[in-house]
């Protein structure tokens, strides 16, 4: 993990900027689990993506929180079998999106949004709040769906190298030039994160932590212009480097995917699991 310089006494914007840069750098470098030897890592990326797509569709279409929870348990089991630490995985998947969705869904718990059978009530600010069964069921289903979907996507990205994930797009008939462009953007995000961080440190070494509000705006504007110029120059240079090695407008990329018997079994297994969950839900 890369840590940017910690600034205990820095202001909110400064800390946010450095945290954002740190996030970009970590996100582009984080392939620790993707290169491990584990169950999901051993699967062919295309098949793995289709398996996860099946599970995602299942999570979205199931109407019972219990069966979605079963799918979530399967997701955790897959994470465990792939050497992804469960605590790390839970923190990574629950911190943002599911917690925010929980906040969004809170009003629907109450009778003034979802009418129905009351199961609990309380008074606050002189108002009586009634939680309804229908409201609670809806909220649980909503959060379960989001948590499971996010967990599946995070698990896929944690156990697959970014470059391979991008190349999987080719199999969905995304043009090679788009795949190449996205992978190059991804490649240079890190470079620009480092450049911006270095510029920031260089400015700080000359002007100190505190700068006048107007001066600060001036520095930020100059920084944006400077980074824009650098990115323009970089794009020209990279294009020259591509031309120099024979690029002629339509890129050809390395495709090295070869599905094994195990991959096909896994694909069939995912279809069976999804079908069983739908069947059990229908029988319920």
């Amino acid at each position: 993990m890369i840590r940017t310089t910690s600034i205990k006494n820095g202001n909110f914007l400064e800390r946010s900027a450095l945290s954002a840069l740190s996030f970009v750098k970590n996100a582009t470098l984080y392939e620790e689990f993707a290169v491990n030897k584990g169950f999901l890592q051993s699967l062919e990326p295309r098949i793995k993506t289709i398996v996860f797509l099946f599970f995602l569709i299942t999570a979205v279409c199931l109407k019972s929180a219990i069966f979605i929870a079963l799918l979530y348990l399967l997701c955790l089991t897959l994470a465990f079998c792939s050497g992804v630490p469960i605590i790390f995985f839970l923190v990574r998947t629950w911190v943002f999106i599911p917690i925010f969705s929980l906040c969004i869904v809170i009003p629907s718990l109450f009778s003034f949004v979802s009418g129905g059978q009351a199961i609990a009530s309380f008074h606050a600010l002189g108002i009586k709040f009634i939680i309804t069964r229908q409201g609670l069921d809806g909220a649980v289903l909503f959060v379960a769906r989001i948590a499971t979907s996010v967990s599946l996507v995070v698990l896929l990205s944690l156990t697959t190298r970014h470059g391979e994930l991008l190349k999987v797009l080719r199999n969905f008939k995304v043009p090679q030039v788009f795949v190449l462009t996205v992978s190059m953007c991804y490649r240079y995000l890190y470079l620009f994160a480092v450049i911006i961080e270095n510029i920031f440190i260089a400015i700080k070494s000359r002007v100190g932590i505190v700068s006048h509000h107007g001066k600060g705006q001036h520095i930020v504007a100059w920084n944006i212009a400077n980074t824009y110029n650098k990115s323009t120059q970089l794009s020209e240079d990279v294009y020259k480097a591509m031309l120099s090695r024979g690029y002629s407008g339509e890129p050809r990329l390395l495709e090295k995917f070869h599905p094994q018997l195990k991959d096909w079994f896994c694909l069939i297994g995912s279809v069976i699991v999804s079908a069983c969950l739908f069947y059990m839900e229908l029988r319920k």
Partner: peptide, 23 residues
């Protein structure tokens, strides 16, 4: 190139090395 970061634009070393022969 003088700046290797310009020349290495692919997501992995392997892809960078085979980029020329592929094109």
């Amino acid at each position: 190139f003088q700046n290797a970061d310009i020349q290495l634009f692919c997501p992995s070393v392997k892809e960078d090395i085979v980029f020329g022969p592929l094109q």
